[in-house]
Computed example of a mutant assay.
Amino acid sequence: MIAAWPTEALWLLTGAAAFAAGVLNAIAGGGSFLTFPALVFAGVPPLAANATSAMAVSPGYLGSVLGFRSELRSLPRALLQSEVSIAAVGGLIGAGLLLITPERVFAGLVPWLLLLATALFAAGPWLAKRQGGQGQAAWRLPGLMAVAIYGGYFNGGLGILLMALYTLTGEGRLNTVNALKNLNSFVLSLLSVAAFAVAGAIVWPQAVWMMALATAGGWLGARVAKRLPARWVRGLVIGTGLIMSGVFFYRA
C-alpha cells in the first residue's frame, strides 16, 4: 500500500500532519495523534514513529509559547521555574521508561488516561467553583510530575492532561492554562527527544521536515486560540479527547 504512493505524496502527508498538529497542540492538544499515524503510514516502524513524532511536534510548542508571551509574563517567575524544572525531570524519566519498557504494556493504559483526563477537564470549572480552589494547589506540582512522565513516554494526549491538571488546580483563565500547557509541553518534549536522539530512535529526515511545519502551525494555533471564545476552545478540547479516547480504545 505504501509503495503505491509516490515519495512526494508521503512527504506532503507527513508535512500536513505536522502543521495541523502544531495548530491543534496550541489550541487543544492531541497533535501527536496526527503525526504518529502519518509516520507509520509513510513506512516508519512504530517505535521510531513514536520517537520521531515527539521530535516533530516539540518545536511547535515553542511557537505556541511565543504566542502566549504576555500570559506567561504575568505569572510569578518562581512558579514558572519550579514547573519547568519538574517538567524537564519528568520528561527524562518518561523517555527512559519508553526505552526500557515494552510499549504495549503502557499502550493499554493510554485510552483510559485520555478518557479520564477529558472527563476531568470537562468537570474542572464546576469542581473549582464547588471547592473554592482550596487545597487543590497542593497537588499541582506532583500532578505535573506524573503528567510529564506520561508525556515523556507517550506524547499522545499530553496537552489534554495538562489542561485538565491546571483546570482542576484552580486556574480559571483559559489562555493562561494554554500558555502553561505549551511551555511545559515544550520543555518535557525537548528533554525526552534528546534522550530518543541519543538512543538512535529518531528518523531524522522526516523529523527535520515535520519540525519546521509544526513550529509554523504552533505559532498560528496560538493566535487562533486567543481569538476563539473560551467555550469554543473548551469544546474543542473535550471533543478531541473523546475522539482520541475512542480511537485508542479501538486500537487496544
Rank of each mutant, 00 (worst) to 15 (best):
M1F: 12
M1S: 14
A4D: 07
W5Y: 12
P6N: 11
T7A: 15
W11F: 15
W11A: 15
T14W: 15
T14Y: 15
A18I: 11
F19H: 05
I27E: 09
A28M: 03
G30E: 06
G30R: 03
G30I: 00
S32L: 10
F33H: 04
F36Y: 13
F41S: 04
A42G: 04
V44H: 02
P45D: 07
L47N: 04
N50W: 00
T52H: 02
T52A: 06
S53D: 03
A54I: 02
A54G: 08
A54S: 11
A56E: 03
A56T: 04
A56L: 05
V57C: 00
V57I: 14
Y61L: 05
L62T: 06
V65G: 01
V65S: 04
L66N: 01
S70W: 09
S70E: 14
L72H: 07
R73M: 09
R73K: 12
S74P: 06
L79N: 08
L79G: 14
L80Q: 05
S82R: 13
E83C: 10
V84S: 12
V84T: 10
S85F: 14
A87K: 08
A87S: 11
A87Q: 08
I93G: 10
G96S: 03
L98A: 06
L98C: 03
V105A: 13
V105D: 09
V105S: 10
G108D: 01
L109I: 11
L109G: 04
V110I: 14
V110L: 14
P111K: 14
P111F: 08
L113V: 15
G124C: 11
G124P: 07
P125L: 07
W126A: 15
L127H: 06
K129Y: 01
K129P: 10
Q134M: 03
Q136V: 13
A138W: 09
R140L: 14
V147F: 09
V147E: 02
A148H: 10
I149Q: 13
G151S: 13
G152K: 07
G152H: 06
F154C: 05
F154Q: 01
G156M: 06
G157Y: 00
G157S: 06
L158S: 08
L158R: 02
G159R: 07
M163R: 00
A164P: 00
L165Y: 00
T167P: 02
L168N: 09
L168E: 02
T169G: 03
T169A: 04
R173N: 14
N175M: 11
T176S: 13
N178A: 10
A179S: 07
K181G: 05
K181E: 08
V187N: 04
L188M: 13
L188Q: 10
L190K: 00
L191G: 05
A194M: 14
A195E: 10
A195G: 08
A197D: 12
A197W: 13
A199C: 11
A201P: 06
P205E: 11
P205D: 09
V208W: 13
W209M: 15
L213R: 03
G217W: 05
G217I: 03
L220R: 00
R227E: 13
P229N: 08
P229C: 06
A230M: 11
A230G: 15
W232I: 13
V237L: 10
V237Q: 08
I238F: 12
T240N: 08
M244G: 04
G246R: 02
V247I: 12
F248I: 03
F249L: 12
R251G: 03
